[in-house]
């Protein structure tokens, strides 16, 4: 139950990371065609790292859980 709460937090962090990537263009503080402002560069980097990192962790968590489930099935089959 507690792990599920942590996973939910990670998923929300993933969504927030995606929002950070699009925020400069959605909010409008990055003009189109202009060079990226400092805030835009910061948001892209932080958002990308947050989204990418949380995605990798979520996938690794799911993969480990799957491995554990298949291991249990193998033991019960034996």
């Amino acid at each position: 139950m507690k792990a599920k709460m942590g996973l939910t937090a990670l998923f929300l962090i993933f969504l927030v990371g995606l929002w950070l990537v699009v925020a400069p263009f959605a909010v409008g503080y990055q003009p189109r065609g202009a060079a990226y402002a400092d805030a835009t560069v910061n948001d892209l980097w932080v958002g990308g790292v947050l989204a990418g990192g949380s995605f990798v962790v979520l996938v690794a968590y799911a993969a480990d859980a799957l491995r554990e489930i298949t291991g249990r099935g193998r033991h019960s089959a034996d």
């Binding site: 792990a3 942590g6 962090i13 932080v46 947050l50 990192g53 949380s54 962790v57």
Partner: peptide, 16 residues
């Protein structure tokens, strides 16, 4: 281990 990795990732997110 996966829970530990999750905790580390959450801590990094906190710092971010």
């Amino acid at each position: 281990i996966r829970k530990f990795v999750g905790a580390v990732a959450a801590a990094l997110a906190l710092m971010a």
